[in-house]
Structures are given as structure tokens and as C-alpha cells.
């Protein structure tokens, strides 16, 4: 196996892994602050991706414009979803609340996927921009891929800066680390949780637009992505964005290398196996805390 082949696979893996990391950021924020595992998280990417590709196909809008339309929409819907359906469940006993949130988010997943499939068709779609490619030896990188990589880096930095410097970021970090103390210090939990749910969902919407620029999406692919994102935050640490980015990229590269050296039919399975191994090896370090 030549070095070129391996390098080509690594480049592809970094790109896919960066997108996984963006999805994981949103999940990490939400899980860190709200303590709800949103099973429909990856489905947001699937649905927004389908919508973006339909908008592109029907009106030839530029992807940037599509993102400007969809991302705020998803922010509002995410916030409303939390306030309308999940927030009322938090008043129940911890067990009932857990069951309730799991079932409501799984129900949302089913409905979102099916409605999308009925309206837009169940097939895969994406936005194909035939951009020129750069050839370095035997390695091929398209301009689109470079643009996506750049966007991932910019978005990661932006999220990082927001979390480090703004009041919202401070509150998010405080609630993630010490929910009770944060509340005592005046971080109003309902407002922050709602805002976080919206921001977390909007992050996925951004990832979705980038994702459909290279890879196809279909209405039913969301749950696999949720599992991948969860693997990433379990390994990288909840609320730890640099960690999530590193683990996301590693997961993307690992999927590529498994495909190269073992067989592509096993690539999608490794995140599940990895999740199992990590949870089995370090159960205590990742014990679930009640909010």
C-alpha cells in the first residue's frame, strides 16, 4: 500500500471527522447544560441537509444563502422543541424524566425522518458543485473540500471564542460544570437551557449545509450520526470542544483506514464498537449525573 493512498484516505477522514466534530459540538453543549440526550440530534443534520439540497435544486440559491435561511430557523425550532416538549418533563421524577425525554426525542426522530421522506422522497441527495481540483502527486483535493475544511476551522474557533468570552459562554461552562452553584450565582437556568438547545441545534444545521456539499444525505441517516457524535463527546469529554474536535477527526480517519485495510463494509460499525469499548473500560469516569 503506497503512502499516497494512505495520505489520500487520511485527507478524506479529516474532512468527514471535522464534520462529525461539528455535530458533536452541538450535542456536547446540549448534553452539558440541559442533561438531555437528544436522540434526534443527528436527524437535524439529515433533515436540514435534505432541505438545503432541495432549495439548491429548485432555486439555485448559493449555499451561504441557504445556510443564512436555515440556521436561524433551526435555532428557533430547537428552542421551541425544548420549551414545548422537553421542559415540562423535567418536573417529573428522575426516572420518568429520563424515559420521557428519550421517548420524546426518539419520537421526534421518527416523525422528522418520515415527514421528510414523504415530502422530499427517501433517496439520497446533495449539492454538487463541480469545483476544480488540486493534484499533489497522486493525492486529489477539491476546492470544495478545502472550503469546507476552512469553514470547520472558522466555526470551531468562533464557538470556542464565544464560549470563552461572552456571558452566554460563561454561563454555559458554569452550568456544565456546577449546575447548582451556577444557579445560585444568578445563571437563570431556563433561559440558558433554552438558548443552549437552540444554539446546539443551529450548530448541527451549519454542519448539515457543509455536509451536503460533499456527501449525500437521506432522511433516515440521522441516528447513526447521533451515535457517532455521542461517541465523540464520551471520549473527548463533555463540554470539551478541543477534545471533541481531535476525537472527531480521529474517528473520521479511523473509519477511512478501517475501510482501507480491513474492508469498507465495517467502517460505519467502528464508532459503535469504540463507544462500547470506552464505556466498558471507563464507566466510572463517565457516570451520568442528574441535573
Amino acid at each position: 500500500m503506497s503512502v499516497d493512498v494512505v495520505l489520500q484516505v487520511v485527507v478524506g477522514g479529516v474532512l468527514l471527522g471535522g464534520l462529525y466534530a461539528l455535530v458533536a459540538f452541538g450535542l456536547s453543549l446540549i448534553y452539558g447544560v440541559v442533561r438531555i440526550l437528544n436522540f434526534a440530534h443527528g436527524t437535524i443534520l439529515a433533515v436540514v441537509g435534505v432541505m438545503a439540497s432541495v432549495m439548491f435544486a429548485s432555486w439555485q440559491l448559493s449555499p451561504v444563502l441557504i445556510a443564512l435561511i436555515l440556521v436561524p430557523g433551526v435555532f428557533v425550532i430547537g428552542a421551541l422543541f425544548y420549551r414545548g416538549l422537553l421542559r415540562p418533563l423535567e418536573r417529573r421524577s428522575p426516572l420518568e424524566a429520563t424515559i420521557g425525554t428519550v421517548l420524546v426525542t426518539v419520537g421526534a426522530l421518527l416523525i422528522l425522518s418520515d415527514v421528510t421522506a414523504v415530502l422530499a422522497g427517501p433517496m439520497q441527495r446533495n449539492i454538487l458543485l463541480r469545483a476544480p481540483v488540486i493534484e499533489v502527486g497522486d493525492i486529489i483535493i477539491s476546492i470544495t473540500q478545502l472550503a469546507i475544511l476552512a469553514a470547520i476551522v472558522v466555526l470551531t474557533l468562533a464557538i470556542h471564542v464565544i464560549l470563552k468570552t461572552t456571558w452566554f459562554g460563561l454561563a454555559v461552562r458554569a452550568v456544565t460544570q456546577e449546575p447548582v452553584a451556577a444557579e445560585l450565582c444568578g445563571a437563570r437556568s431556563l433561559g440558558i437551557k433554552t438558548l443552549t438547545f437552540g444554539v446546539g441545534s443551529a450548530t448541527v444545521a451549519m454542519a448539515a449545509v457543509l455536509y451536503v456539499l460533499t456527501f449525500p444525505v437521506d432522511p433516515y441517516m440521522g441516528f447513526g450520526l447521533t451515535v457517532k457524535a455521542f461517541t465523540i463527546i464520551v471520549v473527548g469529554g463533555i463540554g470539551n470542544l478541543p477534545g471533541a474536535l481531535i476525537v472527531g477527526v480521529l474517528l473520521g480517519v479511523a473509519e477511512g483506514l478501517v475501510g482501507l485495510f480491513w474492508g469498507p463494509e465495517w467502517s460505519p460499525a467502528i464508532s459503535v464498537v469504540l463507544l462500547l469499548l470506552i464505556l466498558v473500560a471507563f464507566p466510572a469516569g463517565f457516570r451520568w449525573r442528574r441535573a
Binding site: 428519550v102 464520551v234 462500547l276 464505556l279 463517565f286 451520568w288
Partner: peptide, 17 residues
């Protein structure tokens, strides 16, 4: 070995595999 939401995820993963 795990609890809560993690238990849900591990059982899901086991069945998946």
C-alpha cells in the same frame, strides 16, 4: 458497567453489533 443514559447507549450498541 454503566448507568442511566449510558446504559441505554451500551445496550443499543450491543444489539447493533
Amino acid at each position: 458497567r454503566v448507568r442511566g443514559v449510558y446504559f441505554a447507549l451500551v445496550t443499543f450498541g450491543l444489539a447493533q453489533v
